[in-house]
């Protein structure tokens, strides 16, 4: 067949980005601040909270990583990268001024337009704070567009909690309701709560038009969504950011298939309604 489609760029080819700063958030998780090398690309790079990028440690591989920064604060991109495999370990060996490859942004992200004018409940567990932090910052920068904003965040222990200092500051923010909890560990110095993130549901009341944004470990979705449904939130208004194995990020390689959806393209944000229709999703 001769004439198929207009020419486009090679979607597998990353763009170069430079590490501006690195900061350890937990023993395994490091915040990467990066800047695209090409100034025009850096200027034009736009994204939605909840989208992700494929980040390359060249020679080792590529990993899908949620964007933790907010598009309302352009210039630098932030990624929380947990050292769990070959590629993320290689990324952790890099230093400021080293280069990474970036492709993206990919995926649907959180429906921020839909969330406008509504109460927003954000639920995160462990490293799951990474994608919803983008949403939280986005909402803060457009605070008058949203009704009440609540963040429920749980981590295994104090040292596993991401953005501890930032959260402590935000906790005092008059327009935010932040509830933090630790599963266990030494909580003597811990001024907040202990118990799983689902135990925080008892402490909140949920307004009728509430939308939820959730990112927790794979095993926790069933419990969290049940808690949210019990609170009266509609299944269509529970938005979950899911994790899957991904290679291409652009709906070609098939690896992230969840039923008839691709996590990389149709997700990574799915509603509870999607989960009811797609077995194996949560």
């Amino acid at each position: 067949m001769s004439q198929l489609l207009a020419k486009t760029e090679n979607p597998y080819r990353p763009v170069r980005a430079k590490i501006v700063d690195l900061r350890d958030l937990t023993p395994e998780t490091r915040l990467f601040q990066v800047k695209l090398v090409d100034p025009k690309a850096a200027r034009d790079f736009d994204y939605r909270p909840g989208q992700f990028c494929q980040i390359s440690a060249l020679g080792t591989g590529e990993a899908p990583i949620s964007i933790s920064s907010s598009p309302t604060r352009p210039g630098l991109l932030e990624f929380c990268i947990r050292r769990v495999g070959r590629t993320t370990s290689a990324l952790h060996r890099l230093n400021p001024n080293d280069e990474v490859g970036i492709r993206g942004p990919y995926g649907n992200g959180f429906p921020v337009d839909y969330m406008e004018g509504k109460d927003v409940l954000i639920v995160a567990g462990g490293v799951g704070l990474a994608p919803v932090r983008s949403l939280l910052l986005y909402i803060l920068d457009n605070r008058d567009q949203f009704r009440s904003v609540t963040l429920l965040y749980g981590a295994r222990s104090l040292e596993d909690m991401l953005f501890r200092e930032e959260l402590k500051t935000l906790e005092r923010h008059p327009d935010l309701n932040i509830l933090l909890t630790l599963d266990s560990g030494d909580t003597r110095l811990w001024p907040f709560r202990t118990g799983l993130v689902t135990s925080l549901f008892e402490e909140i009341t949920v307004a009728p038009k509430t939308v939820a944004a959730v990112c927790v470990p794979p095993v926790a979705y069933k419990f969290v969504t049940k808690g949210l449904l019990d609170k009266g939130i509609s299944g269509e208004d529970i938005f979950m950011s899911l994790e899957r194995k991904m290679h291409c990020g652009i709906g070609k390689c098939g690896c992230c298939a969840v039923g008839s959806k691709y996590c990389c393209q149709d997700g990574p944000v799915f509603t509870y309604w999607d989960a009811l229709n797609l077995p194996d999703m949560i």
Partner: peptide, 8 residues
């Protein structure tokens, strides 16, 4: 059509 991507 599934494929995996890897570096060498």
């Amino acid at each position: 059509y599934c494929f995996s991507i890897y570096d060498q």
